[in-house]
Design a protein around this nucleic acid. Structure first.
Length: 682
DNA sequence: GAGTTTGAAACT
DNA sequence: CAGTTTCAAACTC
């Protein structure tokens, strides 16, 4: 490579240079960079835009920029720092090879600079386009970086764009609201067109794009919605597995734009392929961030969905696509949550009664997976649990270490989602967890001859009715909180860790109630007198009671264990579950936590806490709230059930969400309706 | 992934 | 209600 000449790097007039050199920005950057000439020259363009802006314009008073600062300041600052770094980086490169650097701007030569803003190929044009997207600056930048992350040269342009935008932001503030609004719209349109064009030009490999789509969305969304988590930016610059950053926060954030992006996404899909389309959604999300703001409040409740962190670098295209699906699902959830009226799964009744929003389960009624329902005010939502399935892919996909880890992450961050595997019951018997949970089977299910689908709704309902006629409690929650009147009769047993009991009790003979064969154990509750188990060793509470068991070492141990578990049993159990790849109780609990998040308020609060973290959820769950969560199945059946409203919710499947794969979706909490005075704090 | 074990659900 | 069969999840290898 030829050694570049500094003079060659300086395309702009010296006058401009001297002007901006006097500017505070220049001084600041200058102080950060050991390289003067190259830096100056390279940043020249960037600063040209500043040349006609007074320092005061560039750094408006807090009052003036108050609003925007609240949203973008952090990012901007980050970017500034980053910008400086990149400028330096670019400068170095320029010193080493200005020619090459220049060329890089055209060819996207520097792929090794993830996180760098760049626009190869059409970068020039793009840059100027970016110039037009002032309002989306904060969001656009990360988004842009995602798409190209290559040339340092482009960085300069990006920087240029940044500075211009910064300037324009100030200018924009001076415009009338009407003008701003109109301009923003035009800008968005341009932004969209530009990005689309850019995509065409760059021909970014789907995998690359897919790789970025997840975190880009996260970053951009976060940037827009929050005042940004520094870690996110940091991760961004690293270009390493950004999606793992603050998954809790990012997850819900990433959901936000989805709702409004649908159309745009479709548009994009039609033009670019699935991957691009999926990813584009994110881009579009960026370009319509204002809309996302509006949606944010609605989305918050949905936060607990599978997070982007689960996405892996590999299978990026697929992940991206999956992410897209997840988003679609979440979008529906948003709708669902927004809707005052909806069809609901029986299990959701308690929540409804309490004035809570329905759980994030899909509601059954006439909808197939992917269908957005609704008529009769019934909003069918695909629960996020479906997402997990999608993310996880097929069962086969779950086997690779990465997949497993991914799955595990998902498990931690979201409720589980299990699929049934019925072969002979047609999924119309209680053997079927989906059916038992009042949910329709969905695509991920491996069932055969399944009739538990929206298209067979009639049959499903009839069968259900039949079963209920035989046993009115058939779909009632199997686990009841200790506070329930029914449990009051249990006396001390109610004090067991789970503070809940299996309604009918188990009948274990060989598992000693220490395996998930035992419904009590699976539900994370201790056995009760109503259990007919033999050799009960339920770690959550023996049938005979803790005190009694204390007589023998084993019993004592169990009691101690229970005691210790009381405060953290969720977590402990979860760990055990993880070890076994099944999350017995904890999983349910965790799910319940997710499910508890039925109200926007609740979810919001959780979201704010980064509730994505499994442990956090667990800890947040009141002990006595240990509910039996409905396992899986993401497509909740609608419950047009004839079940006595008060008496039941759809009983959760026994194994409710116990399987590892099942862990990912949100489950409805199984509790008897009467016992839910308050599921979650108002 | 296939086979076994287990206990709930369903049936008689 | 009890015994048996069926079923699918949980578990093991």
């Amino acid at each position: 490579m030829d050694t570049p000449h500094k003079t060659q790097i300086t395309p702009t007039p010296t006058s401009s240079l001297s002007k901006f050199e006097d500017s505070p920005v220049f001084k600041y950057i200058d102080s950060l960079s050991p390289i003067e000439q190259a830096k100056s020259s390279q940043t020249d363009n960037a600063f040209n835009s500043l040349a006609f802006l007074s320092p005061s314009s560039l750094f408006p008073s807090p009052q003036i920029n108050c609003h925007r600062e609240s949203r973008f300041s952090v990012k901007r600052h980050h970017f500034s720092a980053d910008l400086s770094t990149r400028v330096l980086q670019s400068s170095n490169e320029s010193n080493a090879s200005q020619e090459a650097s220049k060329a890089a701007g055209q060819s996207g030569l520097y792929d090794e600079h993830p996180g760098c803003l760049s626009n190869d190929g059409s970068s020039k044009g793009i840059s100027s386009d970016l110039f037009d997207k002032q309002s989306d600056l904060a969001v656009e930048l990360p988004g842009t970086s995602k798409y190209d992350c290559r040339s340092p040269d482009d960085n300069l342009e990006a920087c240029d764009a940044l500075l211009k935008k910064t300037s324009l932001e100030v200018v924009e503030q001076e415009r009338s609201p009407f003008q701003r609004s109109r301009d923003e719209w035009k800008e968005r349109q341009r932004s969209f067109e530009n990005e689309r064009d850019l995509r065409k030009i760059r021909r970014i490999k789907p995998s690359e794009e897919a790789a970025g789509c997840g975190w880009v969305a996260v970053v951009s969304d976060v940037a827009d919605m929050l005042t940004v988590n520094t870690s996110i930016i940091h991760e961004n610059s690293d270009g390493q597995d950004q999606r793992t950053v603050d998954s809790g926060t990012t997850s819900f954030i990433s959901n936000i734009p989805e709702f409004s992006l649908d159309n745009a996404n479709n548009l994009e899909n039609a033009e670019s392929g699935d991957h691009q389309g999926s990813c584009k959604q994110n881009e579009l999300g960026d370009s319509v961030t204002d809309q996302t703001s509006c949606i944010l409040s609605t989305c918050l409740p949905d936060k607990p969905v599978v997070t982007d962190s689960s996405l892996k670098k590999d299978d990026k295209g697929e992940k991206c696509s999956q992410l897209s699906r997840q988003r679609s699902i979440r979008r529906r959830c948003l709708v669902f949550e927004k809707s005052p009226g909806f069809g609901l799964h029986l299990n959701s009744l308690p929540n409804i009664l309490k004035g809570q929003n329905p759980p994030n389960k899909s509601i059954l009624s006439s909808m197939k997976m992917g269908e957005v329902p609704s008529d009769n005010g019934t909003v069918v939502i695909e629960s996020s649990c479906e997402a997990p399935a999608s993310v996880g892919g097929t069962d086969a996909d779950h086997n690779t270490p990465e997949k497993k880890r991914q799955k595990f992450e998902l498990v931690e961050e979201s409720a589980s989602c299990k699929r049934c595997n019925c072969k002979r019951s047609k999924c119309l018997k209680l053997y079927c967890d989906c059916f038992a949970a009042g949910l329709y089977c969905i695509e991920p299910c491996s069932c055969l001859d399944c009739f538990n689908k929206p298209i067979h709704e009639k049959m499903v309902l009839e069968t259900r009715k039949q079963i209920e006629s035989r046993n009115p409690q058939a779909f009632a929650p199997k686990v009841i909180r200790s506070t329930d009147s029914v449990l009051d009769t249990w006396g001390e047993n109610n004090k067991t860790p789970a503070s809940a009991r299996h309604k009918r009790g188990c009948n274990c003979r060989k598992s000693s109630c220490l395996k998930k064969y035992c419904e009590c154990f699976q539900a994370g509750v201790g056995c009760s007198p109503s259990c007919r188990c033999e050799g009960c060793k339920n770690s959550f509470g023996r049938k005979d009671g803790c005190d009694e068991s204390g007589s023998d070492g084993e019993g004592l141990e169990a009691c101690e264990k229970n005691a210790s578990v009381k405060n953290s049993h969720d977590i402990v159990t979860h760990k055990n579950a993880e070890e076994h790849r099944d999350l017995p109780v904890p999983s349910n609990i965790s799910r319940s936590s997710s499910q508890l998040c039925n109200t926007p308020e609740h979810c919001s609060s959780e979201s704010s806490l980064g509730q994505s973290k499994f442990n956090s959820n667990l800890q947040a769950i009141p002990e006595d709230e240990t509910p039996k969560v409905l396992k899986h199945k993401c497509l909740p059946l609608i419950l047009k059930t004839n079940s006595p409203p008060n008496s039941k919710r759809v009983s959760p499947p026994h194994h409710e969400c116990s399987s590892s794969t099942a862990q990912r979706s949100r489950k409805l909490i199984l509790k008897s309706i009467p016992s839910f005075p308050s599921f979650c704090p108002p």
